[in-house]
């Protein structure tokens, strides 16, 4: 177990956006959190890294290495973010400062987290760019000079730079077309197998869930209504809402047709 969320509640005044949610994420597993917009899944993910806005309050416990990270002071949390827990977001343009190159972003990132040797930094950056399938020359570019897919690759390179234990991908492919989305996700899968980090994958698209995840939790109106292994949820969903989600996503028919035709 790498991260355990126990009775997490995120509230805005009287309103509970996340309502007593508990879930555990194991080492190296792909954990999918599925729900529609407004279900509270993003708030849950932001509570983990203390990224919630000041008008939101989180209570309960988020256990990482025996500590409740909700109670971490700011400095300690800053150290944890990036090194142990890192994020990629839906808005890949917003993840980069427009007047810094990709390389400058990485430099800053490594320096803040204590990699002081210049040669070592250079080596790590080169490796990171290669690992996401971007040419090294792209590092010298600014974010607006890259396409959506390339930019999301760059943000993955940045997020995995320090080999975190858990990567939180919040609707990371929603803004991309399904072809680029698929390429990004299979890249993530490869990297996960190589580096062994856990992924908390937040999405509304059931098809991505089916293809990549190990464990699934379905969230609705701030509550987890159903959770379990992929096999269980895909083949024997219990909750009506889960069934609805499965039905809503269009899929191609099984390939048996091809066999019968030829």
């Amino acid at each position: 177990m790498i991260l355990a969320i126990e009775d997490l509640t995120v509230s805005h005044g009287e309103k509970k956006i996340v309502d007593k949610v508990s879930l555990t994420i194991d080492k190296g597993e792909w954990f999918a959190l599925v729900g529609q917009s407004g279900s509270g899944k993003t708030m849950l993910s932001q509570a983990i890294g203390q990224l919630l806005g000041t008008n939101l309050r989180a209570s309960g416990r988020i256990m990482y290495q025996g500590d409740n990270v909700l109670e971490y002071p700011k400095e300690k949390m800053n150290q944890l973010r990036g090194k142990a827990i890192s994020y990629i977001f839906q808005d890949y343009h917003g993840s980069f400062t427009p007047f810094l190159t990709i390389q400058q972003h990485m430099e800053e990132y490594l320096q803040t987290h204590g990699v002081h040797q210049k040669t070592q930094r250079k080596e790590m950056m080169k490796e990171a760019m290669e690992s996401v399938g971007l040419e090294a020359s792209f590092a010298k570019r600014y974010s607006f000079q890259l396409s959506g897919g390339q930019l999301q690759r760059a943000s993955i390179a940045l997020a995995l730079l320090l080999e975190p234990d858990i990567l939180i991908a919040d609707e990371a492919t929603t803004a991309l077309d399904s072809v680029s989305a698929h390429r990004i996700l299979s890249l993530l899968q490869d990297l996960q197998q190589k580096k062994g980090c856990a992924i908390l994958f937040i999405t509304h698209d059931w098809r991505h869930v089916v293809r990549y995840s190990d464990k699934i939790a379905v969230m609705k109106d701030g509550k987890i209504i159903e959770t379990g292994t992929k096999q269980k949820l895909v083949h024997q969903p219990e909750h009506a809402y889960t069934k609805q989600l499965i039905q809503a996503a269009p899929t191609l028919p099984m390939r048996i047709r091809e066999v019968s035709k030829s």
């Binding site: 529609q36 917009s37 059931w206 609805q244 989600l245 809503a248 996503a249 269009p250």
Partner: peptide, 10 residues
């Protein structure tokens, strides 16, 4: 659109 609306619109 979100997932459920997508299916309904189709």
């Amino acid at each position: 659109l979100d997932v459920l609306s997508q299916g309904a619109i189709l």
